[in-house]
Structure formats: structure tokens, C-alpha cells
Design a protein around this nucleic acid. Structure first.
Lengths: 138, 138
DNA sequence: CTATACGTGAAAATGATTATCATCTAATAT
DNA sequence: ATATTAGATGATAATCATTTTCACGTATAG
């Protein structure tokens, strides 16, 4: 991911590198607040604005995907390939990636039936994850 | 839709009835602001808070679906059946409903492979609608 | 018709995100 | 190694969507 950022007028500050590292290594689809807390563990003076700024850059460069929900508070996804479906637990708010399905023919079918030129899609399933189901029955 | 609301302590004020009418009849997946402006045409003193309050009620009653996007500003969907896919035009921001596909087996496949108990899903395609494609080539 | 609980309008409060600005520093040239 | 400078940071204010507050209004049950 770092390689993808070289070339433009892009400085590799410690905070930036740490934010990159967190987003690239997390499978948790973290919120800004979560990234902020984790950056702070290593660089305690980091500002929340810095986290937002860097995530914005990564968004623009296509390195992370922003996941908006009606409830507010975006989540960020650095796991490739894009796009892929998400499993959202409505109890613990965790977001997981299921095994990737082949959705290309679905996209093509809808494109041809609607006349849209489709450039992206998003597929989210909402439900209760296995762990929260256990907690329910316990 | 009105029938679905009777029974509970629900008063049928003029503003409320107008908001219901707008959401039930619109195919445009309007924003709060758009509903607000339309209500105002008939009831010019209506407050924005009233629009939010009534949409919240309808959400809770399952009569409208709230569509959140990363860009902010929710859109509202009163078109059944729920859930159904959406075609989002990234140029004009219109949201359309394509012909409904059969997605049940997709849901079942993902449920069994992840262990999730799925209660809902959301499938959005982002692209350029036919009208905006024409505008491009013109 | 009266009473009461729910609804409304206006404005303040909240929460997430973005912009501002003075200061700092990574990258580049000297 | 040093100076230069454009980009980055931290702190804070501003913005935008949404929710809450509260005094007043009114639909509905009795």
C-alpha cells in the first residue's frame, strides 16, 4: 500500500505511516475513532483531524473503501479485492468479510436490464454473527 | 400505509398525513430536505424537525427504509417489497429501482457459509444512468 | 365540551466530519 | 550537513445532518 502512495507530493510522516499500517493490517473495518485510539497508543499527540485527513487521502487514492450506514459513523475497509460483500452484525457491530462470491454476472445482468453503466457496487448483509447467537442462547 | 399506522397512539395531523402521502407516492427515494420542501408547499409553517420526527416513526414501524451513504445525507424508500436493490447514479444522485431479481438463494448461501442469521440485506449498484450517459456524449 | 396526552414549531444541543491557521518537519536542493 | 519550502500536524472553530428541548397547540377519547 505504501508503494501506491509514492510518486506524488506525499510525505511519509510517522503518524501517516502508522495510520496506513493500521488500515492495511486490520480486518475489523475500523471506525475513525478506533483508528484514532490505535494511532494514539504509539503517537499520543496525534490529532483526530490528522486521522480524518489521512483517511481522506487514502479514499481518494482508492486504497480504502468508506462504508457508510444510516446509523452514522463510517467504517473503513482496506481489504482487497474491491468490492466485496460485508456481513454486518447488528448486535456487536462487527463487520466481517465472507468468502467471496462471484457476483460479476449479477452486475452484468442488472447493467443490461437498466442501461446503467455500473462502476461499483455494494452488498451488505445484516444479521447476527455466530458469537452473538451463542451469547443469546446462553 | 395509513392503515398500518392506526391502532397505536398515533394522531393523524395534517403534516403527518402529508409526509406519509409524499413518502408513499414517491419513486425518487427522497432526502429529508426534499420531503421538507414538498410538505412546505402545502403547509408552509412545517418545521424540519417534524419531518425528521415523522420519518423516524415510519422507520420504526418498518414503513420506510433508510438508505445511508458514506457521503452523508440519508435517503428514504417507501417502495415495496423490502429489501430490493438500488441503482444509484453518481452524476445526478437519482436512485432507481431495477426489476427485482431473485436474491434469496444468494442470501441463503452466504448465511450457511458464514453462520450468520441474516435478517436483512442491502444491494446497491453505483454508476451512470442512461440519461446522464446521453448528457455525456452530447 | 373538556381534559389529556401526543404533536408541532423554533431553537438549542449533539455528533461526525471538514476547514482554518500557526507551527513544524520531511524531502529536496545547496 | 544546512537551508529551503511545500506539505503535514495539532488545536480549535466551523459546518452539516440529525436529535432534543420546551412551551404551546390540537386531535382524540370520554
Amino acid at each position: 500500500m505504501i508503494e501506491a502512495l509514492r510518486g506524488q507530493n506525499f510525505r511519509l510522516t510517522p503518524q501517516r505511516l502508522e495510520i496506513l499500517r493500521i488500515l492495511a493490517s486490520s480486518r475489523e473495518h475500523p471506525s475513525v475513532e478506533q483508528v484514532f485510539e490505535e494511532v494514539r497508543r504509539r503517537f499520543p499527540t496525534t490529532s483526530l483531524a490528522t486521522v480524518y485527513r489521512n483517511i481522506l487521502k487514502l479514499k481518494e487514492l482508492g486504497q480504502v473503501l468508506e462504508l457508510g450506514f444510516a446509523e452514522g459513523g463510517n467504517r473503513y475497509d482496506g481489504n482487497r479485492p474491491f468490492p466485496h460483500p460485508h456481513m454486518v452484525c447488528i448486535r456487536c457491530r462487527k463487520i466481517m468479510d465472507p468468502d467471496v462470491e462471484n457476483l460479476e454476472n449479477l452486475t452484468e445482468r442488472i447493467a443490461s436490464s437498466t442501461g446503467f453503466k455500473i462502476v461499483n457496487h455494494r452488498l451488505d448483509f445484516f444479521g447476527i454473527c455466530p458469537r452473538c447467537q451463542e451469547a443469546d442462547s446462553a
